[in-house]
Nucleic acid binder design. Structure first.
Length: 922
DNA sequence: TGGTTCACG
DNA sequence: GACGTACGTGAACCAG
């Protein structure tokens, strides 16, 4: 006997009832949420009953996918006059899906079928396997399904409904209920039935004659004249009604029964959902905190009125106040507190937040109203003495309560920088917005998001340039040497502009459906990335130095050989000289390229020559690799070690990449070599602190998985679900055979798809002619028609709207789609194909990063530090003893990072390694 | 400053 | 028939 027990929740039915039975609650943001709250508690109780006697082992929520079904084809008026759902219930419908996903419970809906039918199909299939079935609903139509092994549960009053209930209520057993319902009809659903026949008469008739058919056949014998006439006149309607109430139970299951297995409560997605909804009491049950946040669940898709641009004063540098007395400082702080929001900007001695020292802080409380509070100015040591200013400790002590006040919103431009500086001064900024990120999430692809760009774009105003204040080049001074008068104009303007930008950008967020990606991804990520930058990573200087020396010896040797072969010394690193030496002095074959008229000497060209047996070409390639490694990595990294922390602190740019990725600078730690053995050695120089290990966690082939999901390619989805080798599968589909050659070609093609394919490009990479490449592409599209469809839809979308979006709603604008030249437009098309995939991958890992800290903390793993992100990889520093426990949490958070807002039809795979160095952790 | 090359995903 | 030709980054170097 099977101990499986499947619970099928009639989601749509539930919320209609919950809506009418529960008080009209709203969530923290004034959005109606009563039905969702009821649904959430109900689902919670069910999931919690896992393994209890008679509790579920398998669970699914079933929803109506569409209003049109086969019943409309049978009878046009079916459900035609159903009143529209109440206005404050409508926005709750999509939340039902989100709530369900937050519990990691499957949410099933199918075009053309009503929820009742899907429930019937699952019930039938589960009973056939010998399972117990419980339908969570009190819908009368579903009661037709009751039989031994299947009951219903009314969660509103916690009643089990069985055969007895049906007999009591309708006077007939479940197997005859359909006949009764057909006679009764249903005015809400517009099932016609027979006029004048209600529940009492219907059950009486069925009991008397035994079935609907018998009733209709014997209608003439009925005594009551009115009833007899009505039955005779509406016999056809009764037969039609019988079909309308009959549940379909023979359709294929959208998800197999096993997929409905209940897994228990998943902490992160659930916590996020509850926090966003503001369901505080429920949140306490999962051990989350009631963090202030904004609801981002309902993105209003409504076309918005244009943003009103308030009257604003012109920019006036002279109006900004320089704060040098305690009393004035207090006034500004009081004003900012009363206002509830304040723009903040820091002035420092350095661009690098880890090394910079604070010099002053500027605040703005309204357009045109800003001040500068200097405390670290020293004068230039010649003409001006150290100016009169408030002491640093006093200013910071006064600012601390303001900056840490959760009910005053701090607004910054590139706030990550200021966050780090304040953190280093013992101040934790909470409750913040960042205008750079606002602009990034609204206008990615439409230009830069730096203050200067934004000010010009939104206010047609040129900010005071840093150059004009601090000079440039050799005579450049640090900000602490700038006069207070100049500093006040410059710093005051920065805060003023930031506040004005916020007023301009913030209201657009919800109008343009960017709230979700801002609130759920980029804004919370800012503090996480700041933390990572401060943590830094340890590198072994001696090891780098050894590598540099090794490389130097080899480079010198190669230079000698190359010069000798070339018949004289020249600058190998100069593409111009190298081209001339190879193609003129040595007379090799090759062509000019590009407008600059320089011979191409890139890898492809040199490899071509090397393959032809030209030894110099091979040596040049080797020389290039070594000089690259030495100058970019082994030499440069040693310079980048921070003398105070002894570690390397990169800076992650959060608003540069068009697709939503991070980028890394000073130094770039996202392009440390790994592909060649020689370069890989550099990774061994990235080491863990004593007593720790480095842990590297990689999403495996995340972009191909996302492509399989987004383009809906069943073969690829199945392959990922079953852990097959994806390139082998493609090789099999395209070439009918799998060997090293076809697998390699398939891999190239899979990547080509992600990047927006062209026959020419593929031909070049595969070394075949264009016709053959085109044939391969055609075959790919035939085998995976979803991909062709995805490309067509995406390109259509970008042409129409000018942007594409990720699964989380992140936009990439592609103005090039309306470009003048064909090549510009085609380039935009390729970007359009790639951006949603690359961008969704970026969204997912960012969400994992946001959740990682709390998830680790919940397991007591507070010493685990996240150090780096490399697009699909996260690198952590972990106390040796915590490695196993940390792996478990990290894997869980990364694999579930899309939930609950996005439910992927492919699993996300994560590979984890640990070791004393980054190299060893792979 | 722009062009070229090459390191990464 | 021409247009060009795989997506996203950052750093170092040369040459003007």
């Amino acid at each position: 006997m099977s101990s499986n027990h499947l619970y099928l929740v009639d989601g749509s039915g539930y919320i209609f009832r919950a809506y009418h039975r529960l008080p009209p609650l709203t969530n923290r943001h004034g959005m109606p949420a009563g039905a969702v709250y009821g649904f959430t508690t109900m689902l919670w109780k069910l999931v919690d009953d896992l393994h209890k006697a008679d509790g579920p082992t398998h669970l699914a929520v079933i929803l109506d996918a569409s209003s049109r079904t086969f019943r409309n084809d049978m009878y046009g008026a079916y459900k035609a006059h159903r009143p529209p759902p109440p206005e404050d219930l409508v926005p709750q419908f999509p939340l039902i899906r989100t709530a369900t996903r937050a519990f990691s419970v499957p949410c099933i809906e199918e075009e053309g079928l009503e929820a009742d039918d899907i429930i019937a199909c699952y019930a039938r299939a589960a009973l056939a396997e010998g399972w117990q079935v419980t339908i969570v609903s009190s819908d009368k139509d579903l009661m037709q399904l009751i039989e031994p092994g299947l009951d219903m549960l009314d969660t509103m009053n916690n009643r089990r409904l069985g055969r007895d209930h049906v007999i009591e209520k309708f006077g007939v057993p479940p197997e005859l209920l359909g006949d009764v319902l057909a006679l009764m009809g249903d005015s809400v659903d517009n099932v016609p039935g027979v006029p004048g026949v209600g529940p009492k008469t219907a059950s009486q008739l069925i009991n008397e004659f035994g079935s609907l058919d018998a009733v209709l056949q014997n209608a003439e014998t009925i005594k009551k004249p009115k009833l007899r006439e009505s039955l005779l006149a509406h016999a056809d309607n009764a037969r039609l009604s019988r079909e309308l109430v009959r549940l379909v139970c023979d359709r294929p299951l959208p998800e197999p029964l096993d997929a409905l297995k209940l897994k228990g409560l998943p902490p992160e997605p659930l916590r996020e959902f509850l926090a966003e909804q503001g369901f505080k009491s429920l949140l306490l049950r999962v051990g989350g905190e009631g963090q202030p946040g904004r609801s981002v669940l309902a993105e209003p898709a409504v076309a918005a009125a244009p943003v009103e641009i308030p009257e604003e004063p012109a920019f006036d540098h002279k109006s900004y106040e320089c704060v040098t007395s305690e009393a004035t400082l207090d006034l500004w702080i009081t004003e900012a507190t009363a206002e509830g929001r304040v723009a903040v900007d820091t002035e420092t001695t350095h661009l690098d937040a880890i090394r910079a020292e604070l010099v002053g802080v500027s605040l703005a409380t309204a357009s045109g109203r800003a001040c500068y509070i200097p405390f670290g100015h020293v004068g230039d040591g010649l003409l001006s003495e150290t100016p009169q200013q408030l002491p640093r400790e006093l200013v910071l002590a006064k600012l601390k309560p303001l900056l840490e006040n959760p009910s005053v919103l701090k607004i910054g431009q590139n706030l990550k920088y200021d966050l780090i500086l304040f953190r280093r001064a013992g101040i934790d900024i909470i409750a913040y917005d960042d205008t750079m990120l606002l602009s990034y999430d609204l206008d990615a692809g439409l230009g830069g998001h730096g203050m200067d760009d934004l000010c010009k774009k939104h206010f047609s105003h040129d900010t005071i340039s840093f150059k004009s204040v601090c000079g440039t080049g050799k005579s450049q001074i640090t900000f602490d040497k700038v006069s207070l008068a100049q500093a006040t104009e410059y710093a005051g303007e920065d805060a003023d502009v930031t506040l004005r930008l916020w007023q301009r950008l913030k209201p657009r967020l919800s109008r343009e459906a960017a709230t979700r990606v801002y609130e759920l991804v980029d804004r919370p990520l800012l503090a996480v990335v700041a933390e990572m930058e401060m943590a830094g990573i340890s590198v072994d200087r001696a090891e780098l130095s050894r590598l540099s020396a090794d490389y130097a010896v080899e480079i010198a040797r190669l230079e000698g050989v190359i010069h000798q072969a070339a018949g004289g010394p020249f600058t190998i690193g100069s593409p111009k000289q190298l081209g001339e030496v190879l193609f003129e002095r040595m007379g090799l074959k090759g062509g000019r390229k590009g407008k600059s008229g320089v011979y191409s000497t890139d890898v492809n060209e040199m490899e071509r020559l090397a393959a032809e047996g030209i030894e110099v070409a091979r040596l040049v390639l080797e020389w290039r690799q070594l000089t690259k490694l030495k100058s970019t990595y082994t030499d440069a990294l040693q310079q980048q070690i921070n003398p105070v922390t002894g570690r390397v602190h990169t800076s992650f740019s959060m608003a540069v990449a068009q697709t939503g990725r991070l980028s890394s600078t000073d130094p770039n730690l996202q392009n440390i070599p790994i592909r060649t053995e020689l370069g890989r050695r550099i990774r061994d120089a990235f080491v863990a602190a004593p007593g720790h290990v480095l842990l590297s966690a990689d999403y495996s082939q995340i972009e191909l998985r996302l492509a399989a999901h987004m383009a809906d390619v069943p073969q690829l989805r199945t392959a990922f679900a079953e852990g097959q080798d994806i390139h082998n599968l493609t090789a099999q589909e395209l070439f009918g055979t799998v060997d090293r050659d076809t697998r390699g070609r398939a891999k190239t093609i899979n990547f080509a798809i992600l990047y927006g394919i062209s026959a020419f490009g593929l031909a070049g990479r595969l070394g075949v002619d264009r016709g053959e490449a085109q044939a391969i592409i055609d075959r790919y599209f035939d085998r995976f028609p979803g991909v062709r469809n995805y490309i067509a839809l995406t390109v259509g979308q970008v042409r129409e709207q000018g942007f594409v979006t990720t699964l989380f709603g992140r936009k990439t604008h592609l103005p090039g789609i309306k470009g003048k030249t064909v090549s510009e437009r085609q380039a935009a098309e390729r970007q359009a194909i790639n951006a949603p995939i690359q961008g969704t991958s970026a969204d997912i890992i960012k969400r994992a990063m946001v959740r990682m800290g709390p998830a680790l903390a919940a397991e007591g793993l507070t010493s685990v530090k996240m150090l780096l992100q490399v697009h699909d990889e996260l690198v952590f520093e972990v106390p040796e003893a915590d490695a196993a426990a940390a792996s478990t949490v990290i894997r869980r958070v990364m694999e579930s990072a899309a939930e609950p807002y996005v439910r992927l039809s492919v699993p996300l795979g994560v590979e984890i390694g640990t070791g004393p160095s980054w190299g060893a952790a792979h």
